[in-house]
Amino acid sequence: MKLKEVQEILKAKVITSVTGWEDIEVKSACGCDLMSDVLAFVKNQALLLTGLVNPQVIRTAEMMDIKVIVFVRGKMPGEDVITLAEKLDMVVFTTDTPLYVACGELYSNGLSGKGE
Rank of each mutant, 00 (worst) to 15 (best):
A40T: 15
P98Y: 12
M64T: 02
I9P: 02
A12P: 02
L84H: 08
S28N: 07
I24Q: 03
K27P: 03
K43N: 10
D37M: 14
A40S: 15
K67G: 11
I9T: 02
L10I: 00
M35G: 13
S28K: 08
T97A: 08
I82Q: 01
T95K: 02
F93M: 06
T94R: 08
E62Q: 02
P55N: 11
K43T: 12
I82F: 03
V53T: 15
M76I: 14
L49H: 03
L84R: 11
L84V: 08
K75R: 07
V26K: 00
N44K: 15
T95R: 01
K67E: 08
S17W: 04
V38L: 13
K75D: 09
V57W: 06
Y100W: 12
G104S: 15
T19C: 04
S36H: 11
V101N: 12
V38G: 09
M76A: 10
K75T: 10
W21E: 06
L84P: 01
V81F: 01
T50S: 07
L49K: 07
G104R: 14
V18Y: 00
D80W: 00
G31S: 12
C30E: 03
I66D: 01
D96S: 15
F71M: 06
E8D: 15
T95E: 01
G31E: 08
V38Q: 01
K67D: 09
L52M: 12
V53H: 08
F71N: 01
T83Q: 09
M76E: 13
M64I: 09
K13F: 02
A102S: 13
I69L: 07
D65W: 06
E22T: 05
E62V: 08
K43E: 11
L48K: 05
R73Y: 05
I58Q: 09
V18E: 08
T83A: 11
G78N: 00
C32W: 04
G74Q: 06
L48A: 11
A29C: 09
S28L: 06
E22I: 09
E22W: 09
V57H: 05
G74F: 05
N44G: 12
A85Y: 04
K43L: 09
M90W: 02
C32N: 13
G51W: 10
I69R: 03
M64E: 07
S17D: 12
C103E: 14
G20D: 08
D23W: 01
K11W: 09
P77G: 09
D80G: 01
F93P: 00
E86L: 03
K43A: 11
